[in-house]
Design a protein around this nucleic acid. Structure first.
Lengths: 143, 143
DNA sequence: GTTTATGCAAACCTTTTGCAAATTT
DNA sequence: AAATTTGCAAAAGGTTTGCATAAAC
């Protein structure tokens, strides 16, 4: 179950938009905050059903959108035709390294790269709003 | 029209796979090599039609796949639900900076970042096969 | 009691596919 | 002549949408 404090903030965000706090929305929030995987909507939807939550795919999609908007979660696209969602709240900033053999997703963060990125944007007269940095890798010892 | 040398190499690559050189394939190659934009299949298909090339969407998709495989072009996905293709042959390695206000795509390259990336992968026991690095930016003077 | 949310199924949109007809070698 | 390619339209796959019913305020 979601922490009471978080639940309260969630309700306030919803109200601010004229939206209602429903059990479906709370279930999706709960599901997303208690899992650190990078999952597709379909997987999240199935996890909810498996936990006995009565919800539809449509509501799952709609709620994930809201959670992305308010930065509870992040939407990621590694270009394989599947969109994944991951927990963002209380999760440190990071980028992704994807093993092309196992499909494993490893998180990394490098301050020096971030600094260089900012410099590049600045040199062109821009500032970075967000970025995507993905390394597709394979184990060193393999051919 | 495509350079004779390139056309010959293209034909050889095709033969090597038991594929035939057709006017449709040559037209797509020509269209892709003579344009530096980052375009969707639909835009490329329409450009071909506008140039009087008789081709179908299906063949355009099929040929783009072949061109990606043999590195004449690159497939890119900036996560907006549209897949774009850009010329790769004779085009230097680069990453992308996308202006979220104008949609403009600016290319950049930074050797120091590449070195850091390689180091990160290596530290995890991996080597990089390819990477995606996209900076979503907005002009500095805007709010 | 109003208003918003939900579930369902249909619609969407881009990409892929099966197959008969056309083109290439 | 044999083999591959093409165009067409249908299928696919994931996401969105319209609408009547249900739930929240």
């Amino acid at each position: 179950m979601v922490d009471k404090k978080i639940q309260k903030q969630f309700k306030e965000l919803l109200s601010k938009e004229g939206l209602k706090m429903t059990s479906a929305r709370l279930s999706v929030l709960d599901e997303m905050l208690s899992n650190d995987e990078h999952r597709e909507c379909e997987e999240i939807f199935n996890a909810l059903l498996a936990n006995g939550v009565k919800i539809s795919r449509a509501t799952t999609y709609r709620t994930l959108d809201f959670l992305v908007k308010y930065e509870y979660i992040r939407k990621m696209d590694i270009g394989d035709g599947k969109i994944r969602y991951e927990k963002k709240l209380g999760h440190p900033r990071h980028d992704h390294m994807i093993c092309i053999e196992s499909g494993n997703i490893i998180e990394f963060h490098n301050e020096a790269i971030e600094t260089l990125q900012d410099k590049i944007a600045k040199n062109h007269g821009y500032k970075i709003v967000r970025h995507v940095h993905q390394l597709f890798v394979k184990p060193i010892n393999k051919k």
